[in-house]
Amino acid sequence: MDFGHVRVVIDYRTGRVRCQVPGRSQDPVVAPRSSWGSDEHIAGTERLGGASSLSAAVALTCVFAIKRSGSESTAMHRLITTLRTAMSLSRRPATFRQATAVVLAVRRAAWWSPGRTACLEESAAAVLLLAARGLSVTWCHGIAPDPVRLHAWVQTEHGELVAEPGSTRAYTPVLVLGDRREQ
């Protein structure tokens, strides 16, 4: 993705993020260790009301297991492959209300998680939980420039952001999975 003042290259097989600044060396430099998440999202910093969902905790545990089941350098590839497979089994689009309820249930479960839980883990768990119910959403991974930051989120088939601040629109989607409008 070329933003003019910086070119960002994401390798979804290895999870490596590299940046190239025009006028400097032509070789991309490795970006600072990426969190694959945004700092602006509340993701576990405040408790959300409502009962915690066991199925949301199971979906989150599956995401952690997928990320840790092999080499760290291929964790993102494994997760994307799993999301694609899960989405291929979905029969009908989730409504905004259904998707929001699942995302909030995952966020409640994430509060008790012993590991890092940010937008990547939350959005992936929401996709898995919805897919287990035969429902689909669109999963997006995007970049925002200046400073360069990454974010993952879900949206409805009509493009409605699910439980996301409006500032999510500042991210340019780089990888979009499950967008039925393109099929």
Score class of each variant (00 low, 15 high):
D39E: 14
A86H: 02
M76V: 03
S123V: 07
T100H: 07
G50E: 05
S88A: 09
S90V: 07
A65S: 10
R169G: 04
L135M: 15
S123W: 04
A132R: 15
P22A: 01
S25R: 11
E182G: 07
L129C: 14
L129N: 01
W153K: 03
L150G: 08
F3G: 03
V106E: 03
A31Q: 00
R7C: 14
R91E: 13
R78M: 13
D27G: 15
L104G: 10
P145V: 05
W153I: 03
V176A: 06
K67Y: 08
A99W: 10
S52H: 07
S123K: 02
S52K: 11
F3Q: 07
G178Q: 04
D27S: 14
E121G: 14
E157K: 06
P93V: 01
A65I: 04
S25N: 14
P93C: 13
H151Y: 02
L83N: 05
V30Y: 06
H77G: 03
R107D: 08
E182F: 10
H141R: 02
A131P: 02
S34A: 03
R7D: 15
A94D: 09
S34G: 00
A75G: 05
T81E: 09
L130P: 02
V102S: 05
A132E: 15
R97F: 08
E40M: 12
R97K: 01
A105K: 01
L89Y: 09
E46A: 15
R180H: 00
A126H: 01
E46C: 14
H5I: 03
D39M: 08
G142L: 11
R116N: 10
G178M: 08
R116F: 13
D39V: 03
D146T: 13
S69G: 08
L60Q: 09
S34W: 08
I80G: 01
R169W: 09
Q155G: 00
L60Y: 05
G70L: 13
D11S: 08
L104D: 03
G49C: 11
P145M: 12
Q155S: 00
T14M: 00
A110G: 09
L120R: 08
G15A: 07
F64S: 15
T172I: 09
F64P: 04
V162C: 01
G134N: 10
W153G: 01
A110D: 05
G134D: 13
L104M: 00
T156N: 02
R92S: 06
A124E: 07
A105N: 06
